[in-house]
């Protein structure tokens, strides 16, 4: 029996059953493979497709690359990152000029473009530079801290006069010996490889320092100390310092070097040889003939 009044329920009574399509879609949605595909496979596929479509057009790729480069440039060339001047500390004026020449950057330049390591190596390739430290400081300053090589000896090399430091490294060329009279002179081929030894020997020969002209490297294996008056102290190859100390001791006790000697030959330390000067030799010979005469008489 149908009621005359409308139903109190405002909602129309709808079928709770899912339609066949809805049911199938629901089951599809509950399928684990499908879920995994939707969650992972589909996004990846979409991204890959978009990427492939993008890459397929060379013009678009070029445009993107250009835009990226431009963006990079615009960031790099901001005034905050620009390097405007180079400050060199610890170098003499000449060396500073050299460094400015050798570092091939034309400032102002972005600090991103500066290869500090390469520049450091370039600066260190200068003979006069022992070590260099480069850094970009705030305010757009490229700070170059240089430690110079200190010349220790003058080397009369086959190519001319050169200044060497204590390690034997070339510092600079020298025009004349007179411009650096304070430094010791060494000569001979291969002398630059034994500068440390030469310095030690010069130190040991301090008592005759004012007489010393220089050291000569003989045959690239031993030293001769050249004194004025044409005297030479020939030192052995092995432990020359000991031999020199003996010479100095003899000199201290008997004023060996003050006498008329031409050579003090310590090449064989067990058998030192003295070569006398011509006068001394003549005097000796005269004395010996006198002795002979006295004996014969």
């Amino acid at each position: 029996m149908r009621s005359l009044r409308p139903r109190k329920r405002s909602m129309p009574q709808h079928d709770p059953a899912p339609s066949r399509v809805a049911y199938r879609l629901n089951r599809l949605w509950l399928t684990p493979h499908f879920r995994r595909f939707l969650r992972f496979g589909l996004p990846v596929l979409c991204v890959l497709t978009a990427f492939a479509v993008f890459v397929s057009d060379q013009e678009r790729v070029d445009g993107l690359v250009d835009r990226m480069v431009e963006l990079r440039r615009s960031v790099e060339e901001r005034p905050e990152f620009m390097v405007n001047l180079m400050a060199i500390d610890g170098a003499s004026a000449d060396l500073a000029v050299d460094i400015r020449e050798v570092v091939p950057v034309d400032l102002p330049r972005s600090s991103f473009d500066l290869d500090l390591e390469a520049m450091r190596q370039q600066v260190e390739s200068l003979d006069a530079v022992r070590s260099a430290k480069l850094s970009v400081k705030s305010g757009g300053v490229l700070q170059v801290d240089v430690t110079e090589r200190v010349p220790a000896v003058v080397w009369r090399s086959p190519d001319g006069l050169e200044l060497l430091d204590a390690e034997g490294h070339r510092v600079a060329a020298l025009d004349s010996r007179k411009s650096r009279p304070d430094l010791m002179l060494i000569a001979g081929e291969g002398a630059d490889h034994a500068v440390a030894e030469a310095l030690a020997l010069a130190h040991a020969a301090a008592p005759v320092h004012d007489r010393m002209i220089g050291l000569i490297r003989v045959a690239e294996h031993r030293w001769d100390i050249v004194l004025d008056r044409g005297q030479r102290i020939m030192l052995p190859e092995r432990s020359p310092r000991v031999a020199l100390d003996r010479v100095m001791a003899l000199n201290g006790v008997q004023d060996l070097l003050a006498r008329d000697l031409v050579r003090v030959d310590f090449r064989n330390p067990k058998r030192p040889i003295l070569r006398l000067g011509a006068d001394a030799l003549a005097a000796l010979e005269a004395e010996s003939t006198n002795e002979d005469k006295r004996n014969s008489n």
Binding site: P16, A17, P18, R20, Y23, N26, R27, L30
Partner: peptide, 9 residues
């Protein structure tokens, strides 16, 4: 269908 879908859910 109703019952199966609800149970599956």
């Amino acid at each position: 269908r109703t019952a199966v879908q609800a149970a599956q859910k």
